[in-house]
Computed example of a mutant assay.
Amino acid sequence: MRITFILCFCLLVGFNSYAQQLPRIKILATGGTIAGKGASADRSAYTSGEVPVQDLIAAVPGIEKLATITGEQISNVGSQDMSVDIWMKLNKRINEIFKNNEADGVVITHGTDTQEETAYFLSLTLRYDKPVIITGSMRPSTGISADGPKNIFDAVSVAASKQAAHSGVLLVFNENILTGRDAVKTSTTHLNAFTAPNNGPIGQVYDGKVFLYEKETRKSNKETPFDITGLTSLPRVDVVELYADAPATGIEASIAAGAKGIVTGGLGNGNLNKANVTAVEDAIKKGIIVARASRVPTGRVTLLDETDDAKLGTIVADDLNPQKARVLLMLGLTKTSDSKQLQQYFFEY
């Protein structure tokens, strides 16, 4: 009897020691397709944000072998309804988690519609250089071959790995690892929905094994100047997309609505037609910062090319798409309204 007791005690101590050695990963759920439910497994229709975080965790076989997992529900919305308020709540909570040593890494489950914007916002505002991984799914939890559990398993694998340390905010999807800055949703429905059009993935994850081939070359989140502590809102920045024969009504409406900044999704190299050049001139006279981005999915918008930015008073978004350029301009405007400094942010972050 005594030998049996001692053996059980030793096994228990060994198990607890093993558990303590596992990385501590906190999963923060925000809703989205990954938490969606449909009426039928073989139909695409579903409602986002129906499944709570504990059920998401329970649906991932073997996740307990990767890390000690805890979960929190931050929000439960479809990411078409993602908001600056939720971004700021996420930022505050993640900074608290690392400040209080509650976890070694964070995984965020998120809808795919605005996942790239959340990833970039967090990469610009988090103050701790620990793994933060964002993932989601293209099929709801009730769908045939739902991809959510696999993506969560992969995201936890990356968050728990030594390779992810000092890599900033990453997006893990369909076994690819992308930087929060460069990840873009490029398919409306396919499982391989995310890529980095200019640079490609920086790594892959397969069967719990993480392979990182590159590091982000832009300034790290530890160097970010954008401290939103104490802020309850961000300056309004609107996106106006151009097309053949586009009128100036979009820019005019943004001026009238009180926007502090405007990002144009311009033609080609961020070009503006004559009607919108006039509207941009009016916006700049009123003190509104205008950043030229492009509706083209790859390449950079370059200074002093077909558009004379020095004469017009515009800045360029470099290789950021319009929606990501909006994120950086909102944060930049919390620091300065000087166009030269704002332009430098676009070249550095």
Score class of each variant (00 low, 15 high):
Thr336Gly: 05
Ser157Phe: 02
Glu241Ile: 12
Tyr349Gln: 08
Glu241Ser: 12
Phe173Glu: 13
Arg139Val: 00
Glu64Cys: 08
Lys285Trp: 14
Ala159Cys: 01
Thr229Ala: 08
Thr302His: 05
Asp305Phe: 06
Arg93Ile: 10
Val237Asn: 01
Tyr128Met: 03
Thr47Cys: 10
Arg24Trp: 06
Glu214Arg: 10
Asp42Ile: 12
Leu124Asp: 07
Ser79Gln: 06
Arg236Ile: 06
Lys340Phe: 14
Ala39Arg: 12
Glu117Phe: 11
Val240Tyr: 02
Met82Pro: 04
Ile315Gln: 00
Arg139His: 11
Ile63Glu: 01
Asn321Lys: 06
Glu96Asn: 12
Lys274Pro: 01
Lys130Ile: 14
Thr188Asp: 15
Ala35Glu: 09
Trp87Lys: 05
Ile134Glu: 00
Lys150Ala: 12
Leu170Cys: 08
Thr336Lys: 01
Ala279Leu: 02
Leu12Asp: 13
Thr264Ser: 11
Lys209Phe: 13
Asp129Val: 08
Thr232Glu: 15
Ser48Phe: 11
Met138Phe: 04
Arg292Glu: 01
Leu7Gln: 13
Ser157Met: 04
Gly287Met: 02
Ile63Asp: 10
Glu306Met: 05
Ser145Glu: 11
Val184Ile: 14
Asp318Val: 02
Glu64Thr: 15
Ala283Val: 00
Leu328Val: 01
Val132Lys: 03
Ala39Asn: 13
Gly268Asn: 02
Ala259Trp: 03
Val156Ile: 00
Lys150Val: 12
Gln344Cys: 09
Glu223Val: 02
Leu124Gln: 13
Ser187Leu: 03
Ile315Leu: 05
Ile255Met: 06
Phe211Thr: 13
Tyr120Met: 07
Trp87Cys: 03
Gly71His: 04
Gly265Lys: 02
Ala259Met: 02
Ala196Arg: 03
Gln323Trp: 08
Tyr243Leu: 10
Gly105Tyr: 12
Gly203Val: 01
Ile74Lys: 03
Ala165Gly: 04
Thr186Lys: 07
Leu303Gln: 08
Leu7Lys: 08
Pro140Ile: 03
Thr30Gln: 01
Lys260Trp: 00
Ile262Asp: 00
Leu242Trp: 04
Ile6Lys: 03
Ile57Leu: 08
Ile315Gly: 01
Leu242Gly: 02
Ile315Pro: 03
Leu171Ser: 13
Ser220Asn: 11
Ser123Cys: 09
Leu329Glu: 09
Thr4Gly: 07
Thr142Arg: 10
Ala317Lys: 00
Ile34Cys: 05
Gly266Asp: 02
Ala257Thr: 02
Arg218Leu: 13
Arg139Lys: 12
Gln54Asn: 11
Thr112Gly: 15
Ala325Pro: 06
Phe211Leu: 11
Val280Leu: 00
Ser339Val: 15
Thr142His: 10
Gly180Thr: 00
Gly14Met: 10
Gly299Ile: 03
Ser161Tyr: 10
Glu116Ser: 11
Asn276Ala: 00
Val77Ile: 13
Ser167Arg: 10
Ser161Trp: 04
Asp147Arg: 05
Leu304Phe: 15
Val239Ser: 04
Lys99Cys: 10
Lys311Tyr: 08
Leu90Asp: 06
Pro225Tyr: 09
His166Ser: 12
Lys92Cys: 10
